[in-house]
Structure formats: structure tokens, C-alpha cells
Design a protein around this nucleic acid. Sequence first.
DNA 1: ACCTGAACACCGTTCAAGT
DNA 2: ACCTGAACACCGTTCAAGT
Lengths: 222, 222
Amino acid sequence: MTMKARRGERRTDALSKDRIVEVAIAILDAEGESALTFRTLAARLATGAGAIYWHVADKTALLTAATGDLIDRALAEGDDAPPRQAVRALALRVFDLIDAHSWVGGHLAREPWQPAMLRIFEGVGRQIQALGVPESTQFNAATALVNYILGCAGQNAANARLMPPGTDRDAALAAFAAEWTKLDPAEHPFVRKMAARLGDHDDREQFLAGVDLILAGLEAGR
Amino acid sequence: MTMKARRGERRTDALSKDRIVEVAIAILDAEGESALTFRTLAARLATGAGAIYWHVADKTALLTAATGDLIDRALAEGDDAPPRQAVRALALRVFDLIDAHSWVGGHLAREPWQPAMLRIFEGVGRQIQALGVPESTQFNAATALVNYILGCAGQNAANARLMPPGTDRDAALAAFAAEWTKLDPAEHPFVRKMAARLGDHDDREQFLAGVDLILAGLEAGR
DNA sequence: ACCTGAACACCGTTCAAGT
DNA sequence: ACCTGAACACCGTTCAAGT
């Protein structure tokens, strides 16, 4: 997108970190996490695989840069809503991003110590502060929320791996529900009862319900 | 441990799924997730790499079996405590297990649709039921708790990767805190303020604080 | 039925050599 | 300064061949 065109650059489509990340995201989005290879990426960029290493340290750094780009974009929209609504909106933006790009969820879950995660932590923390949570519990509260988001991110990535684009989602969930129902009633009574809810539940709503639970706990402690 | 000794077996140390899993766990615990290779595993078992495939479908299945073993063992201890204490105890047992075997955290986060996860879900759900949570919210509540645990599991695995055994934990955390302090005060005021708490926080305590937050939210909704 | 081990089809990463 | 592409050091997995 914003290609830092340097002076003295020869071709319009010269290699640059931005362009590499851009193409990586395109591959990731279109074909999934497992399709991103330095060889395929290099082919798409019409270079050698080694060339990429001049611009990016390694594959983890590449994924981190790609994740950072998307998270930045997702968090860019301002929110001057009251804190309670603002956290929900923030969480929801992260959820929707991960839902649209499941590999982001995978990378966040795998590498939580990355700038994008810090940005989420910052956004969450600010609202928690605005919520009037006492200083002594702000750290725990923000961490809890972020860890919850992280867990959902991983779940989402796993789901995407399990049901690649083109999969009949309803059928896949029905298959899981059927398996749950086959479990030993003595050992898994609760799971069996929940099988019925698997099919008609809404991931997004469920995600938000978890956020609300944590926020409610925070307000109860107030 | 419990080697299903089949009739007609030749050597005492014949290959079996149990023995493979046992040795895999030993490698994982001693040298970390990246050290487990079908080649090293086969070498340790004094066989060829291909032999393992007769007993285990693939590497994921191996990790799943190993994780299942440890989770089973960790959840085996009964808890006839009141539900509130029982969930905390259950969560804590999972945390301590993951803390001792970080690869379990990694695998749970990577593959949430596994029996071990279902067992955790079952345990959590039962107590949530006992807590008197209305049926309509039991699914969301149990999922939230499990997703939170999942997120912490991933965090823990990432931490272990970042600070392998022998690392000075205090120094590593101090380094992170120093980096946080170097962030732009305009963009990361909250993170900067939290840097001070990074060093003296207790992971286990923080984990439990998150569980309590969710439980408090559940009781507030009651 | 169970095991062997070479071979296959990949990976990420490095690096001498080029321009 | 930046790119090329062969080569290195691995992987998980398969499978013909053995016992």
C-alpha cells in the first residue's frame, strides 16, 4: 500500500518490506497459514527465496509484521464511547479481524509478546482504567481480558484449520455435536448436554458474552 | 507405566503406544517441544522412525495422547469441595500442570478440539452447573472459562519458549519491563505504567485472579 | 503382526557469487 | 546496497522389504 519509494530505486515493484508483507497477507488470506512458504512467497514476488531475508529477519518476523499491520488498521478507528462500550467495541474489532484472517489468531496465540498484542493490551488497559478499576487490580484485569482474547484467537485459528474455506460449517458442527453425544453419560454428562447448543451458537455472541462476564466481575469487585 | 503387555510379545521393552508416549513425554519435559522428533524419539526407543507409525497415527496424535495422559492424571484427584472452590482448584490443577509441562499448554492452544480439552470443559461445566448458573448461560460461561484457560496456556508455552530452562527469569522480565518503559508515552501510557508490575507479579496468582473475575461476573449475573 | 530404514517431498535459512 | 539460487540441515511421512 504505502510503498516507501526510496530514491534511486530501479523498478516500480522493487522489493521492500511493505510489499513482502502485503503479498504475504494476500497468500495467508487466500490459502491459509500453511500455504505461506518463503518459496511460494518468493515466486509470487518474482525473486529468489533468499532475497526476502534482506528485508525481513525470519518467518516469525514476517508474520509479526503482517499481524501488526492488520491490528493497527483494526484499532485505528477511534472510540470516544463510554469505557464499558469502548472495551466491548475494541474486543469486537479484534474478534472480527481474527475471524476474517484466522492466521492472525494463530500468530497472536503463538507469539503473544509482540507489538500488536501490546497495542491490544494498551487499548484494553486504558478503558479498564477509565472504568475506575483500582490501580492494584488494573494489571490483573487487563491481563485476564487479553488472555481471554488470546484463547479465543487460538480457538478461531484451530477452527479455521479444521474447516477450511468451502467446508459446510453447519455440517461440521453437527458432526462434533454427534461425537459429543456419543460420549459416556457417566463421564461427560455436561458435554453431552451442551452438544445440543453447539449447532445454533454464534461465535461472535459467545465471544462477547465472555468479555461481558469479565467486565461484570470487574464491576462486582468495585 | 501401564504397559499393556500383550500375549506373544517378544521383548520386555517391545514397542507399544504407551511406551512411545511415555518416552515422548520424557523428551518433551527434558528438552522442550522442539526437541521431539520422530528421529530422536525412534533413536531413544531403539527403532526406526517408521515403526512409530504403526502405533500412532501422526505427530499430532502423539502430542494429543501425551497431553491426554497428563491431563487425566491431573484431573484424577476428586474434588467434593463446594463448586466455587472446586472450579478454582480445577483451574489451578490445569495451570500447575501446564506450568510444569509447558508443551501441554502449546498443544492445548494449538489443538483445542481434543479429548483433554473436553475433559477440562466437562469439569468446569459441572461446577458451573452446581453453582446454579441458569441453563441458558452455562454454555457461554463454561466456554469463557475454558477459553481463558486456553489463552493462559498459550502464554505459558510462549514464555517457556522465550525463556528456556536455565534462563534468569527475573532478568528476562526486567528486560521486558525496560522495553515497555521505552515505548512512546503518548501511545502506550498504560503499558508503561504496568511495566513496574511486570517484575513482581506472580503468574499463578494472576491466573487465579482471572478465574475469580469470571466467576464473580457469573455470580453478579445471578 | 510388527519392525526396518531408505527415500520422498517438503521446510526455513545461509551464503558465495553476482549486479 | 540489493538480489540470485544452489546448498545445508533439517522435518514428517511413506512404503517396499524384511522377520
